Each structure stands twice: as C-alpha cells, then as structure tokens.
Simulated assay, not measured.
Amino acid sequence: MTVGKLVAAALTPKVFIIDFYNDEGAIWYGIPEFDLLAQNTSVPGLSPRYPDVHCTQDGTICQVVTDEGEINAASSISALVASPAFDLRQTYFLLAGIAGISPELATLASVTFGKFAVQVALQYEIDPSELPANWSATGGFIPQGTSDPNAYPAYIYGTEVFQLNDALRQRAIAFAQNATLADSTTAQAYRALYNSSATFAAGSRPPSIVACDTATSDNWWSGNVLAAEFERTTKLFTAGAGTYCTTQQEDNAVHGALVRGNVAGRVDFSRVISIRTGSDFDRPPPGMSASDNLFNGQSAGYEASIENIYRAGVKVVQGIVNEWNVTFAAGVPTNNYVGDMLGSLGGSPPYGPYAKQVATRFQSTKRRGRTRMR
C-alpha cells in the first residue's frame, strides 16, 4: 500500500463509520446526536458513487460509504487509509451494515457484533448436481488444497479469517445494550413463520443484541444446505472458535485493507468493531422454498434493520467519544489474537494445527520473495 504524507490540517477522527451503500449511509444523516454532513472531503480512489467522506464540523466523527461487494469495499478503504487528509492512527472504525441472518442464532432487526469475519466462499466448489454421493450435504464446497470437505485448508491466501479485539467488542456491546431497537409489522409477520420450529426458535423472537460472527461472500444466497455449509466452514476455518450468524459482502475486504494499513503504520487494527443487523433470513421457514425466501423475504426486516444500524451504532459512537480520555484514547487492551491468517500484525493465528505451519511457511516464502503458500 502506497500512503500519502499526512498534511498539516489532517483530520483526526475518534470514530470512523464505514457503511456500504446509500440507505446504510443515509440513516446517519439528520440525527440529533451529531451532524455528519457538516464538512465533506473528496478522497481520490473512493467509489464514483460515494466520492466524499462526511465528517462533523470538529472532525471527531467521520463516515465513508464504500459501495457494495468485496472489490468496492477493499478499494475504497485502501484509498481512505492512504489519504493524507486523515490521521487515522488512533481512530476507531465501526463497520455498520445490514446482513442476512441465521434464525438459529438471531432474528430480523437484531444487531450482531462479530469477533470473526470468515471469507466462506474462498474454497473449491463442485457443481452440486455432480457431487459424490457422500458429499450431498456440503453444498459443493471443499477447502482449498484438499479433497476432503472436512479438512483444514492446505492453501491459504491470508484473507480467510480476520479476528477482532474481543475486549473492545464487549465494550461496544455494553454500549449498544442501551439502545431501544426498532421493529416492524413486516418483520414480525415473517418472523412468525418460524414459530413452529424448535431449531429456529431464535428467529421467532423480537430483535436483540447478539454476539456472533459473520461470513463474507459476494454471492447473495439462500437455503438450508448452504447455511449449514457456511456454519461448518466458519467452525472449520476458526478451529471451532467462530459462531456463524450473519452473511454479508464486505467485511473481510474492509479488514484486509485495514490490516495492511496497520502494517503501514496508518491505522490500528485493534480498534475495529463490526456491526451487522438482520435484514433477511439466510434460510427459509418450514414449508417454504429457498427461492421463495430469497425473492420474497428480502425486504421483511429491511426497514427495521436499517434503523437499528443507527439506534445501536450511535450508542457505540457516543460511548467511545464520551469516554475518550478515560479509556479509548489509549486503546482497549486486547485479550485475544487480533489480525489475519498470516500473523501480519504479530503473534500466531490460533486456527487449528496448521496455524504454526502457516506462520512458518509464510516467513520462509517471504524471505524467498514468494508469499503464495502451496
């Protein structure tokens, strides 16, 4: 990453909100707590549809909208990190977007806080119609470098798993617990379709704050087989530590750009928080097809999930700003590994017996000028 030299008037935000498209971004405008449109800064390299960073007049709180999908998210955050207009070395980043949600763990309009983000589609995939008979429940995904759906991946790109600062996550959850969450009649009606299933009991309840993890894929999918597959992938890639509950298209891309920004001395990856609110269910209720859930259930929790980005998120933003001198200026000490699959920020990623081999092979190949592990 090429970074620009900081300018004398560089803004030093305490919190940077990261949204992914217009509705997520606009929910923060016109709120009583602060005015994000007080000053706008054009940043070269941002999405042509969202070319400006918005900030409060004093620059304490800022927002960027990356545009949707992994490429847009990675490109926009890389441009932001490299911009000399901002000094982000003490900034907290709040990823705040909607997501598909698992009715096994949570429900429409719930607000989830992730410790792990897992790039679940970064695998081999076989056409489901041509799967071996004993693989029928896998959805066709096999970890790279293996021929066994249950084997730990032998080829690592480094973006498969990012782990955030859990002590910071717990503080953010405590702030969000003070929010009164929105709900809607459409969410309630769709939620009721899950009442008859004990497995989906969480999906039938009112929205709440939930600690669980997120899966990143550019594919927008629906169905029990894929949901079970990506639950399995999350467990596998995190050596059993991750608990899948939401699916979205950007988090790993944002984290990848921020980790590289940390390596470049531009940001602190231990200051990253991820919020995802439940817009639609990742699998259908009993008696409904996956296609009906995908095409007819997309908007069931949409309105309330957008609203709860703000209702929960603003409590986190205010908590950080209000307690800046007491707690957050110095940073929240980590109590777990923080970073990517390669140990880019120090330490060894604790993901299965392959973890030490990953670190060793990465260092040896880096010395030889190669970083792809085969």
Rank of each mutant, 00 (worst) to 15 (best):
residue 240 G to A: 00
residue 328 F to P: 03
residue 314 V to L: 07
residue 109 A to L: 10
residue 335 N to E: 14
residue 370 R to H: 14
residue 69 G to P: 06
residue 365 T to L: 15
residue 293 N to G: 04
residue 105 L to S: 12
residue 126 I to W: 08
residue 249 Q to G: 07
residue 286 P to A: 15
residue 248 Q to R: 09
residue 141 F to G: 04
residue 210 V to Q: 09
residue 73 A to P: 04
residue 93 F to Y: 09
residue 33 E to I: 04
residue 127 D to E: 14
residue 255 H to N: 13
residue 76 S to N: 04
residue 55 C to T: 04
residue 349 P to A: 13
residue 45 G to K: 02
residue 207 P to K: 03
residue 58 D to V: 11
residue 371 T to I: 15
residue 303 E to Q: 14
residue 6 L to T: 09
residue 309 I to T: 01
residue 70 E to W: 13
residue 87 D to V: 07
residue 137 A to H: 07
residue 321 V to I: 07
residue 287 G to C: 06
residue 351 Y to R: 07
residue 293 N to D: 13
residue 343 G to W: 02
residue 43 V to W: 05
residue 193 L to D: 05
residue 64 V to C: 06
residue 232 R to G: 05
residue 157 Y to N: 13
residue 185 T to I: 09
residue 66 T to I: 15
residue 197 S to R: 01
residue 134 N to Y: 11
residue 261 G to N: 10
residue 324 W to V: 06
residue 46 L to V: 04
residue 256 G to I: 00
residue 268 D to G: 05
residue 241 A to S: 14
residue 366 K to G: 03
residue 88 L to C: 03
residue 47 S to I: 10
residue 336 N to K: 08
residue 236 L to D: 12
residue 280 D to L: 01
residue 210 V to Y: 02
residue 145 G to K: 10
residue 249 Q to P: 03
residue 189 A to P: 03
residue 165 N to M: 06
residue 158 G to Q: 09
residue 77 I to W: 00
residue 44 P to E: 14
residue 171 R to F: 02
residue 212 C to G: 13
residue 333 P to K: 01
residue 90 Q to I: 00
residue 153 P to C: 14
residue 149 P to E: 12
residue 159 T to F: 08
residue 30 G to K: 04
residue 172 A to Y: 03
residue 298 Q to G: 14
residue 291 S to D: 13
residue 191 R to E: 06
residue 46 L to N: 08
residue 47 S to Q: 10
residue 203 G to V: 06
residue 2 T to D: 12
residue 335 N to P: 00
residue 177 Q to C: 01
residue 353 P to H: 01
residue 100 G to H: 09
residue 145 G to D: 09
residue 324 W to H: 04
residue 22 N to S: 05
residue 36 L to Q: 01
residue 10 A to V: 05
residue 80 L to V: 10
residue 104 E to I: 10
residue 121 A to Y: 13
residue 331 G to W: 09
residue 29 Y to Q: 00
residue 56 T to N: 07
residue 2 T to Y: 13
residue 301 G to K: 02
residue 49 R to D: 11
residue 374 R to D: 07
residue 203 G to Y: 05
residue 17 I to C: 01
residue 359 A to R: 15
residue 360 T to V: 11
residue 137 A to M: 09
residue 55 C to R: 03
residue 347 G to S: 10
residue 263 V to C: 09
residue 293 N to Y: 06
residue 345 L to F: 01
residue 173 I to E: 00
residue 316 V to E: 06
residue 86 F to K: 03
residue 202 A to G: 00
residue 169 R to A: 03
residue 327 T to S: 12
residue 229 E to I: 03
residue 163 Q to C: 08
residue 236 L to S: 12
residue 236 L to P: 10
residue 328 F to A: 00
residue 167 A to C: 00
residue 263 V to F: 05
residue 310 Y to G: 08
residue 304 A to W: 00
residue 130 E to K: 15
residue 203 G to T: 09
residue 16 F to C: 12
residue 282 D to K: 13
residue 159 T to A: 00
residue 357 Q to W: 11
residue 149 P to S: 10
residue 89 R to P: 10
residue 43 V to A: 02
residue 167 A to S: 14
residue 86 F to D: 11
residue 44 P to V: 06
residue 365 T to E: 14
residue 284 P to C: 10
residue 120 V to Q: 10
residue 183 D to G: 07
residue 56 T to P: 02
residue 292 D to A: 11
residue 200 F to A: 08
residue 57 Q to F: 08
residue 105 L to Q: 15
residue 328 F to S: 05
residue 307 E to V: 01
residue 292 D to I: 05
residue 267 V to M: 10
residue 186 T to W: 04
residue 10 A to Q: 02
residue 70 E to F: 12
residue 152 Y to E: 15
residue 47 S to N: 13
residue 303 E to S: 14
residue 137 A to Y: 04
